[in-house]
């Protein structure tokens, strides 16, 4: 028994949990901004993928992985903005627009991969962001091995969660954002620009998803692999719901899903097929949705285009 616990809970697994949770964190926080403003963004998966590719392309040509992350941020933001144009201006069905972005991203990244690197499947290795060791903290027993030596983007993700919590719940803009997602009509009547707020939120969600993708390609790995996001955009979406559209809740969900991810191999050793562990985030999200019944947690106007009257 003790052996199994040691196998499942140790500093190596917990450190891996943080690493696996990081791309989900960026993207889930992005999803929260978008949905809090009233725009459903199931294109997160595609935005992540485009981010992952852009990061590699930029890192390859400039030699700087951080510039790659910046490129991913911009590329993601552009995709978010396009999703915004469709769903805010043209009142497109947001799920359709998101699906279009996912399919487009799958095609575009492979197309450009073949064009730029002349390779199918995998890109050449590019400069990546190196792990850093925090002074002092890395020396603390138990905690040190978990958070003391990680990729800077892991720390960045944690900062972004805290930052998003403050922005959404403690600032005027956050109040506006939430009102636009709950009662756009009422928000409009008190002079809040519904369209502009939504554009900013959706663009921001794309930017964060792009950075989440960049983590996979230039921090976790150092190359682009076709379809490398492998559904993480959707897991981030699940984490957003599981965390009740709150950054701190999403942090909990991402850590849990990251933990499941980190455990896969070990659980297989004790006879649990990896596929059942991989299913877990999705099953739990469905269960959580049933559990949330009757308690209004999702932004009310999420998914509905706003039509200004008069």
């Amino acid at each position: 028994m003790w052996d199994i616990i040691k196998l499942l809970v140790n500093t190596t697994v917990l450190a891996a949990t943080l690493r696996m949770a990081t791309p989900l964190l960026f993207t889930a926080v992005g999803g929260i901004f978008s949905e809090r403003s009233g725009v459903v963004n199931i294109g997160l998966e595609g935005m992540m993928l485009i981010g992952a590719f852009t990061a590699v392309a930029v890192s390859y040509s400039t030699g700087s992985a951080w510039l790659g992350v910046l490129g991913a941020l911009l590329a993601g933001a552009l995709m978010g903005f396009i999703h915004g144009i469709a769903s805010i201006k043209y009142r497109a069905n947001q799920v359709v627009s998101g699906t279009a972005i996912n399919i487009f991203a799958g095609g575009l990244t492979v197309y450009l991969q073949r064009l730029i690197f002349n390779m199918a499947g995998v890109s050449p290795a590019v400069p990546r962001i190196a792990d850093v060791e925090l002074p002092l903290i890395s020396k603390i027993p138990l905690i040190g091995p978990v958070i003391g030596k990680q990729n800077p983007m892991v720390y960045l993700a944690l900062l972004i969660v805290v930052g998003a919590h403050i922005v959404i719940f403690k600032t005027v803009w956050g109040l506006r954002l939430r009102s636009v997602g709950e009662h756009p009509g009422a928000a409009d009547s008190v002079g809040i620009n519904v369209y502009k707020t939504r554009y900013v939120a959706v663009t921001l969600s794309g930017a964060l998803a792009g950075v989440g993708g960049a983590y996979l390609s230039v921090a976790h790995l150092s190359r682009f692999v076709e379809g490398m996001t492998a559904g993480r955009g959707f897991i981030a979406l699940a984490a957003m719901i599981f965390g009740k559209w709150n950054p701190l809740g999403a942090l909990g969900a991402c850590l849990f899903f990251g933990y499941a991810d980190a455990l896969q191999m070990r659980l297989q050793e004790i006879g649990i097929p990896t596929q059942f562990v991989q299913m877990l985030p999705y099953i739990l999200t469905m269960v959580a949705l049933v559990g949330l019944i009757g308690r209004a947690v999702a932004p009310k106007a999420s998914g509905e285009p706003y039509v200004k009257e008069g």
Partner: peptide, 13 residues
């Protein structure tokens, strides 16, 4: 694949 995505996008919009 790119075309397919773009077609959906325009149909949506």
């Amino acid at each position: 694949t790119i075309l397919q995505g773009v077609i959906i996008f325009f149909v949506a919009a």
